[in-house]
């Protein structure tokens, strides 16, 4: 069992989940409440990572974050090193890869808030921001927790994107899934099996948590 890879993966997943909470909130809000007629195009872009092969997404991210791209060039000028094959690059790539797993549960839970409550808040003089913070967000807690947990779980198990933009550098970009791949390549099945079981147990636990939330088993508890 490579504890270094596990710790790196957990750090990566936690950073991605926390960043996505902040990034997905305004996107989900806009998707839920915007009346822009071309909104479906933006929704499709956000959902792309769900259907796109990870290697394709990884390839585009490799090009977009590489030192020859404007973003990669800017990053290199600011930090002195490239964004690809670094932990920071993994975070950026994973945020994009897991974006729909946060945005979609957030948007679904915002849309489920009774529009009468939002209207009532407006007639009582509350601004849109106050209505969002005090009415919409508290009533969407289960959807938001589900989004954050799914982003975390999705990042834990990612392989193709990580390999494309991070490579396999121990302690820097080698995640648990890459470690399992390495162990299998080296015919070290017992070590791969232990790591796979740990990943399976964590993923099962997280998904069970999300389903419990959806069945309101935990939502009732969260409201208290």
């Amino acid at each position: 069992m490579d504890w270094q890879s596990l710790w790196l993966t957990i750090r990566l997943a936690a950073l991605v989940a926390a960043s996505l909470f902040l990034i997905a909130l305004p996107i989900a809000y806009w998707i839920t409440y915007s009346r822009w007629r071309w909104k479906f195009l933006a929704e499709a872009v956000v959902a792309l990572p769900i259907v796109l092969p990870p290697t394709v997404l990884g390839f585009y991210l490799l090009v977009a974050l590489g030192p020859r791209s404007p973003l990669g060039h800017l990053w290199q000028a600011l930090t002195g090193h490239s964004l690809v094959f670094t932990f920071q690059g993994l975070v950026v790539g994973s945020i994009i890869y897991s974006l729909p797993f946060a945005v979609q549960p957030f948007a679904a839970s915002f849309a489920a808030v009774d529009s009468r409550l939002i209207a009532a808040s407006a007639t009582l003089g509350a601004s849109k921001l106050r209505t969002f913070l005090e009415i919409v967000m508290p009533l969407s807690v289960s959807g938001m927790v589900a989004g954050v947990v799914l982003s975390f779980a999705h990042t834990l198990g990612e392989f193709g994107v990580v390999l494309m933009i991070g490579g396999n550098i121990p302690g820097v970009t080698r995640t648990v899934s890459i470690d399992i791949y390495d162990q299998v390549q080296a015919l070290n099945y017992s070590s791969a099996s232990i790591t796979a079981i740990v990943l399976l147990a964590i993923s099962f636990g997280l998904l069970a948590f999300v389903y419990a939330l959806n069945r309101k088993v935990l939502a009732v508890w969260l409201w208290k």
Binding site: D114, R116, L117, A119, A120, S121, A122, T123, L124, G125, A126, S127, E134, I135, P138, L139, W223
Partner: peptide
């Protein structure tokens, strides 16, 4: 928000996560 018109909705639209006191003071 600035019309100062009280509106009691058919389904009341009370905020379910707030106490009576917080609903009234909203």
């Amino acid at each position: 928000r600035h019309r100062r018109i009280g509106y009691v909705f058919q389904d009341l639209a009370l905020f379910p996560h707030l106490t009576v006191e917080k609903n009234v003071g909203y």
